[in-house]
Simulated scan of single mutants.
Amino acid sequence: MIEQQQNNPLHGLGLETMLTELVAFYDWKILYASLRLECFNINPNMAACLKFLKKTEWARERVESFYLYRFKRMPKGSSAQFELKPRERGFADGIVPRKPEELTVELIAEMRAKATADYEDMKRNEGQGRPRYGKDKPRAQEGYAQNRRSKADRPEPSQDSANPWGK
């Protein structure tokens, strides 16, 4: 088990230490804006937050994920990795945590609005088949339709077996 956890920044890290690092770097307002946990909003203090996070597994996992992917900026894993709890995830050898991501309340609001817009767009396009890329993408070049021949303008296929191209 220890060999599996050597590449996880959460291994051996207590909840109090993690929360202290997050509060020291980000402050309570940014943590609330990012995580939407009321313990960071209404009369935030270390003791009350620790009590809530120890009792509430989903909230603790949310804080641990934030610590891994925003504070330590570890690379996102595969979908199989995201099935595991944050403390059970591992990372490849040689991957080290990077400097924390700088966040502001305004930046978080922008990211949340963009994510909501992307989600709404995905839901709107859900019934229209797969996304339009490559050959499926509509041609927007000017003159594209003019350069295409209509069926009436195309030459008939050659009936001469010696000249299959019709030229």
Rank of each mutant, 00 (worst) to 15 (best):
residue 3 E to I: 06
residue 4 Q to W: 03
residue 5 Q to V: 06
residue 5 Q to L: 08
residue 8 N to L: 00
residue 8 N to Y: 02
residue 8 N to Q: 00
residue 10 L to Y: 02
residue 10 L to I: 02
residue 14 G to T: 02
residue 14 G to A: 04
residue 15 L to E: 02
residue 15 L to P: 01
residue 16 E to H: 02
residue 21 E to S: 00
residue 25 F to Q: 06
residue 26 Y to G: 00
residue 26 Y to Q: 01
residue 26 Y to H: 00
residue 28 W to E: 05
residue 28 W to G: 04
residue 28 W to I: 05
residue 32 Y to T: 01
residue 32 Y to V: 01
residue 33 A to C: 04
residue 34 S to V: 02
residue 34 S to W: 00
residue 35 L to H: 00
residue 35 L to Q: 02
residue 38 E to H: 03
residue 39 C to L: 10
residue 40 F to D: 00
residue 40 F to R: 02
residue 40 F to Y: 01
residue 40 F to K: 00
residue 42 I to C: 09
residue 43 N to Q: 09
residue 45 N to M: 07
residue 47 A to P: 07
residue 48 A to P: 07
residue 48 A to M: 04
residue 50 L to K: 03
residue 50 L to F: 03
residue 51 K to F: 13
residue 52 F to T: 10
residue 53 L to S: 00
residue 54 K to P: 11
residue 54 K to N: 13
residue 55 K to C: 15
residue 55 K to A: 14
residue 57 E to T: 09
residue 57 E to Y: 06
residue 57 E to R: 09
residue 58 W to R: 13
residue 58 W to L: 13
residue 59 A to T: 02
residue 60 R to C: 15
residue 61 E to S: 15
residue 61 E to W: 11
residue 62 R to W: 07
residue 63 V to I: 07
residue 63 V to K: 01
residue 64 E to F: 08
residue 65 S to F: 07
residue 66 F to C: 10
residue 68 L to K: 00
residue 69 Y to M: 10
residue 70 R to A: 14
residue 71 F to K: 04
residue 71 F to H: 11
residue 72 K to V: 04
residue 73 R to G: 12
residue 73 R to N: 11
residue 75 P to W: 03
residue 76 K to I: 13
residue 77 G to H: 01
residue 77 G to F: 01
residue 78 S to H: 04
residue 78 S to V: 05
residue 81 Q to F: 05
residue 83 E to T: 03
residue 85 K to T: 14
residue 86 P to S: 08
residue 87 R to C: 12
residue 87 R to T: 11
residue 88 E to N: 12
residue 88 E to V: 04
residue 89 R to E: 05
residue 95 I to W: 01
residue 95 I to A: 07
residue 98 R to P: 12
residue 99 K to E: 15
residue 99 K to L: 10
residue 99 K to V: 09
residue 99 K to S: 14
residue 101 E to T: 06
residue 103 L to E: 04
residue 105 V to M: 06
residue 106 E to R: 03
residue 109 A to S: 14
residue 111 M to L: 11
residue 111 M to Y: 10
residue 112 R to D: 15
residue 113 A to H: 04
residue 114 K to H: 06
residue 114 K to A: 09
residue 116 T to E: 14
residue 117 A to T: 03
residue 118 D to Q: 09
residue 121 D to W: 02
residue 121 D to N: 08
residue 122 M to T: 03
residue 122 M to G: 08
residue 123 K to C: 10
residue 125 N to Q: 09
residue 127 G to N: 09
residue 129 G to W: 01
residue 130 R to K: 13
residue 133 Y to S: 11
residue 135 K to V: 14
residue 135 K to E: 15
residue 135 K to P: 14
residue 137 K to C: 14
residue 142 E to D: 13
residue 143 G to P: 10
residue 144 Y to K: 03
residue 146 Q to S: 12
residue 146 Q to A: 14
residue 146 Q to K: 06
residue 147 N to I: 06
residue 150 S to T: 12
residue 150 S to C: 08
residue 152 A to C: 07
residue 153 D to K: 02
residue 159 Q to T: 06
residue 160 D to F: 05
residue 160 D to S: 07
residue 161 S to T: 09
residue 161 S to N: 08
residue 164 P to D: 05
residue 164 P to C: 06
residue 165 W to I: 11
